[in-house]
């Protein structure tokens, strides 16, 4: 799988993937993204549902089983592909920050 095709990630996708280092359900992702971004990024339900669907199709995240699971609230986490993708996106961003800090 060519992960570079999926880069760069949109801000929404980046925050969702960053949140899913640990298993979370939909609404918990929304809350986590809001907290991580200091309230700047608020993902609406329709957008999140579509993003989860896309990331699942691309095998970047998958549904996981957890204890005491509420049937209506599926829990998702990064797959190994997803972890690699997130890591290479972070590398890409680091590089951008590094070169711009050198130049400015």
């Amino acid at each position: 799988m060519n992960l570079n095709k999926l880069l760069p990630l949109s801000e929404t996708t980046f925050y969702i993937m960053l949140s899913l280092r640990e298993p979370l359900h939909g609404y918990a992702i929304m809350q986590n993204v809001e907290a991580l971004s200091n309230g700047k990024v608020r993902i609406a339900a329709g957008t999140l549902y579509g993003a989860i669907e896309n990331l699942t199709k691309q095998m970047m995240i998958k549904e996981v089983e957890v204890e005491n699971q509420d049937k209506r609230r599926r829990v998702y986490a990064l797959t190994s592909y997803g972890k690699k993708l997130l890591a290479s996106e972070i590398e890409r961003l680091k590089h951008l920050i590094a070169i711009s800090s050198d130049l400015l």
């Binding site: 939909g26 609404y27 339900a45 549902y49 209506r72 609230r73």
Partner: peptide, 8 residues
């Protein structure tokens, strides 16, 4: 699941 995400 979809409905729960909106209700939440």
């Amino acid at each position: 699941e979809y409905k729960a995400m909106f209700e939440d």
